[in-house]
């Protein structure tokens, strides 16, 4: 078992078009670092030097990780992580 990460359309150029990829790690931060090894450039679209990018929503199972622990949120095998770009504008 691994952690399933669901990728939005706009980031599928980093995953050869795959809608979902798998990875491992104890925290979201480790998971994103693990994914970066196979999908170079992906991490940079999710994280900046202050943490999760402001206009990217990341959900662990059914919860927004901003209300959990952000990048330090604990993850484990069997979890599903969903990435959705925020829909926003002016």
């Amino acid at each position: 078992m691994a952690i399933e990460v669901r990728i939005p359309t706009i980031l599928r150029n980093y995953t050869d078009g795959a809608k979902a990829v798998e990875g491992g790690g104890a925290t979201l931060d480790e998971l994103f670092t693990d994914l970066e090894g196979r999908h170079p450039g992906l991490r940079d679209r999710l994280v900046d030097d202050k943490g999760l990018r402001r206009f990217v929503n990341v959900y662990l199972n059914d919860e927004d990780v901003r209300f959990l622990g952000g990048l330090e949120t604990k993850v484990s095998d069997g979890d599903t992580v969903t990435v959705l770009p925020a829909v926003a504008g002016g």
Partner: peptide
């Protein structure tokens, strides 16, 4: 002057 979908509502709708 700004809009943003509520993140949990967006998750449910998506």
């Amino acid at each position: 002057t700004f809009y943003r979908f509520d993140s949990m509502e967006q998750f449910q709708v998506w």
